[in-house]
Design a protein around this nucleic acid. Structure first.
Lengths: 203, 203
DNA sequence: ATGCTTATTAAACACCTGTCGGTTTAATCC
DNA sequence: GGATTAAACCGACAGGTGTTTAATAAGCAT
């Protein structure tokens, strides 16, 4: 299984309550003041939770945000693909659109263009995309796994970079993500299907 | 001029001294304990500088590190290319090798795989590479500047991603950067020379 | 219901951050 | 060389961090 959305462990209801409280408060504060302005103090006082309790669940506010992003992105991919773990051109298209929309949505929640914030979003999304593309590359090229890593890495970074660039254009001025994806998807495709020598050398 | 290596402003010798003291101490501490373990306290006490003086020169330790990285990378590119601002296949090769070696060297200074550290290196290097590739794309495709942005963005991210992936292989197990670059450079080339429609569609 | 376990709380801890007002010291300009 | 400008120092500040200890309370068995 590629993605394990819900471990669905039976958790102590206190733990469930506390985590939900923390995450909801965090999401609320994120829209209100942006990531860098949020302190653990903020979260715990608004959630009416002891500060030590926060640290019993998350190492710091970064770990909290990462966990939230991971869950959000997985849910979004599951919503947009039939079977995320099966490669076909429709799913690759869906992947890229998902990344575009996800990054754009995140950026809109980000007051003051916070570099920390963007780095965390990037790292999490890239990690998810890389896992999916490595899986897909294994289906396309069942042999020569070493170059599969290069293919999926190049495709992952190119896709994320393009999505991020697109997301930074003002919403009124940019074309919809579906159209943008259609325009640049050939690049990702070329990378995912690339062979070391067969790409034409251009001087 | 693409890169402005040395503004060579005439600086107050005190400023020069203080900045050199801070940067040298930082570099020393970086090798010793890694980025995340360094505090501004550390830097100023080892440099025998008042803490307030630090903040007169850099907003925080992140800004300091960014400034050091920027200077280092530019110096390295200038060392490895004849004219950085002119595109040819040799310079593209040199660019990729530079990124590989630069990231690998940085990573070796990174105790305990610090995510913050890596994010800063990535952001700085990507920014430099993007500027160079946009410039080069403008030379290759003097018309249709809008797709030039897509080309250079995709190439930048793919190059950085590949370099970063390579740099994380143990030095004994990976091939030298020159060989790795030779192997994956076609991918970067394809992106930089891509046209929206002409890349073959694969199902 | 009664114990056992585990989450949450409360209060304190040492430490770091970024900033400020006032002083001292070094560079620069005539 | 003496006046002027600006960098560097000093001490203090209000805040936040992450950790610890002991006490309390909630969940979960038998």
């Amino acid at each position: 299984m590629l993605l394990t959305p819900f471990p669905e462990e039976r958790l102590d209801p206190r733990v469930k309550r506390t985590r939900a409280l923390i995450e909801n408060t965090f999401n609320h504060l994120l829209e209100e003041k942006g990531f860098s302005a949020i302190t653990v103090q903020d979260i715990t006082s608004h959630a009416e939770i002891n500060r030590a309790t926060f640290y019993a669940h998350y190492a710091d506010k970064f770990a909290l945000f990462e966990s939230i992003l991971r869950a959000r992105f997985r849910a979004e991919m599951d919503r947009r693909t039939l079977r995320t773990c099966t490669y076909d051109s429709h799913n690759l298209n869906a992947l890229m659109e998902t990344v575009c929309d996800f990054v754009a949505l995140s950026a809109s929640n980000c007051k003051g263009n916070d570099a920390q914030f963007e780095a965390i979003v990037e790292a999490q999304v890239r990690q998810q995309v890389q896992a999916i593309l490595e899986h897909w590359a294994g289906q396309i090229w069942p042999e020569d796994p070493s170059f599969n890593k290069d293919r999926s890495t190049a495709a992952t970074w190119a896709i994320y970079g393009l999505a991020q660039q697109w997301s930074q254009i003002k919403p009124q001025q940019r074309q919809p993500s579906s159209q943008f994806t259609k325009r640049v998807l050939p690049m990702a495709l070329a990378l995912l299907h690339a062979e070391p020598q067969t790409i034409s050398q251009v001087g």
